[in-house]
Design a protein around this nucleic acid. Structure first.
Length: 498
RNA sequence: GGCGCUAUGGUGCAACGGUUAGCACGUAGCCCUUUCAAGGCUAAAAUACGGGUUCGAUUCCCGUUAGCGCUACCA
């Protein structure tokens, strides 16, 4: 799998999630940046699943991550590769380090280092100094009943440097780097166990010929360890690009308590993937100018690592919602229709005759009608499911009239009579269009001695059941003469019963 | 505790030594109006603090503070 075909440029990037949870928005943004960079550079995007921790891994979560990426529109050219299936590669690399003296066998019990002080520091600050040098590093007689782990022998003194495309040249003192574990100790008959994160990433990034490692800034402290490993394996480190973290409203790391962090929740909520993508791309990256509404092709065209910010950013949901309404309004209608179709199918309101090229239904509604109706509705929609709920009366004759709407616009005692007269007037119209409806309605209002607005608002409640809807006469046109008249009469008869 | 990173309105970004510190979201008001959105206009709102360097600092350097990250046989 190491000699797959090259694309137009040698740029190769990867997104490497761990299936210990769903696709987090932070991970999604990292994936998006990698993807934008690859597409911009004409490079190759690789997907790798980092599942070396059998304890925490949940294989069933992989599909959710893949689904999330697919919804986001982030596709990959190679993979997914699974680290759990590449164990031999890591063991071979660890043995190579053992052989060339850059690693050693550690017989320390796992508990000696585990648990640490990172969980709870305590208010007093327990001055626990981490052990960075293992006593096994200069060799130790093997203990028959203890299986060793393999640790990296971090150089004593000196510094390790690397280049970061967003943070610049970085240098770390080797004395601050612990003798990290490469391979877990073996269980049962195994000589060695699974690879640890540091070894797996480096071996795979070398093997997959990754040229740019674009990942979260939480890995910046891991980078010198990995650079050391590259050298130990005789490989050249790639360019690193650490992207800032995404925070919640209180500036702490984004987590469940801040609301939805699972990308798939935004899909089910009904956000448009392109809007979500636009929003995410501009969180921690800027093309330099003031433009904010950037379609995906523009994002690709403008993307560069130089524009990536070094500051952590807050996930601002209101702005995401703003993006969604912008896309709902500005997208060419053909781009929106498939999303609405999916939504109506989900809610059971969809009718096959509304599909492109299908024959009109018994009520004359066809694809052109569907398109026109969606176009009318969309300025007022916030999320896709609103097409099923808020717009219910446009797609189904079974709709309810909201009590609050009636309360607001049916208070005038003249309403029943006006609506009845309007039904008659509209039924008599030889032509059914915006202006005809307009004139007829205003004439009825004038004859009844009321302001047009009163009748218009009352009529809206009668024909769609809500106080809020698109402009009335456009609504009438889209609903059709028969339906409007029928709904008006139905409303009038309702008054009789009340 | 140690090491590292960061610091422009409430939020996301611009200004990469010289601007009345710009744009957008959000907020408030006005206009438009047939409801509600959208749209247009206006307003309030920021360079964390203290030292340098410089003719001149948001911008460069140092310190303080704050936030975040790493400090696992997690990734």
């Amino acid at each position: 799998m190491s000699d797959s075909t090259q694309k137009t440029t040698g740029v190769r990037v990867r997104f490497a999630p761990s299936p210990t949870g769903y696709l987090h928005v932070g991970g999604a943004r990292t994936a998006l940046f990698n993807w934008l960079f690859a597409r911009r550079q004409g490079g190759t995007m690789i997907l790798r699943i980092e599942d070396t921790d059998a304890e925490r891994n949940k294989p069933e979560l992989v599909q959710g991550i893949l689904d999330g990426l697919q919804w986001l529109g982030v596709n990959w050219d190679e993979g997914p590769f699974y680290q759990s299936q590449r164990t031999e590669l890591y063991r071979a690399a660890a043995k190579k380090c053992l052989a060339n003296g850059t690693a050693f066998l550690c017989y320390c019990p796992a508990e000696k280092y585990a648990g640490g002080d990172h969980a709870e520091e305590g208010s007093q600050g327990s001055q626990v100094r981490r052990v960075t040098r293992c006593s096994c590093r200069d060799g130790k007689p093997s203990t028959p009943d203890v299986k060793p782990a393999v640790r990296f022998k971090v150089p004593l003194g000196g510094t390790t440097k690397f280049f970061d495309a967003v943070f610049g040249e970085r240098e770390f003192s080797n004395d601050e780097i612990e003798d990290f574990v490469l391979l877990r100790s073996g269980k049962g008959e195994e000589e060695f166990g699974q690879s640890m994160y540091q070894l797996g990433v480096v071996v795979d990034d070398v093997d997959m010929r990754i040229t740019h490692v674009i990942r979260g800034a939480d890995h910046i402290s891991n980078t010198p360890k990995q650079v050391l490993l590259y050298r130990a394996l005789g490989a050249e480190p790639p360019v690193f690009a650490h992207v800032p973290l995404i925070l919640g409203a209180d500036k702490s790391r984004l987590s469940k308590r801040h609301g939805a962090t699972d990308v798939n929740m935004y899909r089910t909520e009904g956000f448009l993937p392109e809007a979500f993508r636009n929003f995410l791309a501009l969180l921690g990256w800027s093309p330099g100018g003031d433009e904010e509404f950037l379609r995906t092709n523009e994002l690709i065209k403008k993307f560069s690592l130089e524009g990536v910010s070094r500051t952590n950013g807050v996930f601002d949901r209101p702005k995401l919602e703003w993006y969604n309404t912008q896309y709902l309004q500005k997208l060419p209608i053909e781009g929106l229709l498939p999303e609405v179709e999916k939504e109506l199918k989900r809610s059971g309101l969809w009718k096959p005759e509304w599909a492109a090229g299908a024959a009109p239904g018994p009520d004359g509604r066809d694809h052109a009608w569907f398109s026109k109706t969606i176009d009318l509705l969309r300025p007022r929609i916030r999320l896709l499911p609103d097409f099923s709920s808020w717009s219910h009366a446009f797609f189904s004759d079974e709709f309810a009239r909201e009590p609050a709407a009636k309360e607001k616009f049916w208070k005038d005692p003249k309403v029943p009579e006006l609506l009845a007269k309007l039904a008659d007037a509209l039924e008599a119209l030889p032509e059914w269009n915006h202006d005809a409806c307009d004139h007829a309605s205003r004439a009825v209002a004038e004859a009844g001695g009321v302001k047009a607005g009163l009748l218009i608002n009352a009529t809206r409640v009668a024909i769609v059941g809500q106080a809020v809807a698109p402009p009335l006469f456009d609504t009438m046109v889209v609903l059709g003469q028969q339906r409007v008249v029928r709904r008006l009469r139905d409303a009038v008869s309702g008054f009789g019963n009340a």
